[in-house]
Design a binder for these strands. Sequence first.
DNA 1: AAGTTATATCCCCATATCGGAATATTTCAA
DNA 2: TTGAAATATTCCGATATGGGGATATAACTT
Lengths: 117, 117
Amino acid sequence: MARAATTADVFNAIAEPQRRRILTLLAGGEQSVNDIARSLRLKQPQASKHLGVLKAVGLVNVRGVGRSRLYTMNARKLKPVHDWVRAFEKLWADRLDRLDEYLNELQSGEIRDEPTN
Amino acid sequence: MARAATTADVFNAIAEPQRRRILTLLAGGEQSVNDIARSLRLKQPQASKHLGVLKAVGLVNVRGVGRSRLYTMNARKLKPVHDWVRAFEKLWADRLDRLDEYLNELQSGEIRDEPTN
DNA sequence: AAGTTATATCCCCATATCGGAATATTTCAA
DNA sequence: TTGAAATATTCCGATATGGGGATATAACTT
């Protein structure tokens, strides 16, 4: 088997940085393909393709108006991701775990000045 | 350019279902490769490979004990994902948006009995 | 030293990617 | 009808994937 298609699920769809940028932009409201492409400095075909992937997994909805296609975000589809990640939140929330992680990183010698993220 | 490497960042690393299963398992505590492989019914090499990816993005830490290698989760690395997704939470949290989404789906004719997720 | 257990690594391969570039399609305008 | 504007689609190519299978490496045991 090869890597799962980007359209396989939301997790794969949002693995792409450009697509995350598109979603962030759309969170601000409906946008046409050209608007998106210009805002994010993407070429029109790439914008269309990324939107196609997002549409395939249901993260966006389209509405045709004249010759424009207006895309809207369907944020709800991110809920599974939110739920999955949130389950781990407690593991980094308290101080004991931060100390623990700090020690781990110290030990693996990967302490630089990078954000802990 | 091709698709970004799975080791490019956490978003790509967790796009793989098996790797998410591994993380979920590790959230319960330290586990050896064999334990993980057996628990998740993976073959040892695949388990090692997936752990390699998770290690590469810092989602897990390793500790060698005898001939075993014990993996621990480093949940903190999920924070960027959590933060990114959480920013959209308000978009699906209130009822108005649910109604809006419902209408959108109705209009695109994709209403079946699938979970809204 | 020889055998065994626990992991990691290597090779193979079918598959999908993402960007670029060109072109097709749809819709409005003159 | 002809042209232009807005999108979508197609073909290309380099690249990494993930599972299978075999094997290498490391560490403990007797």
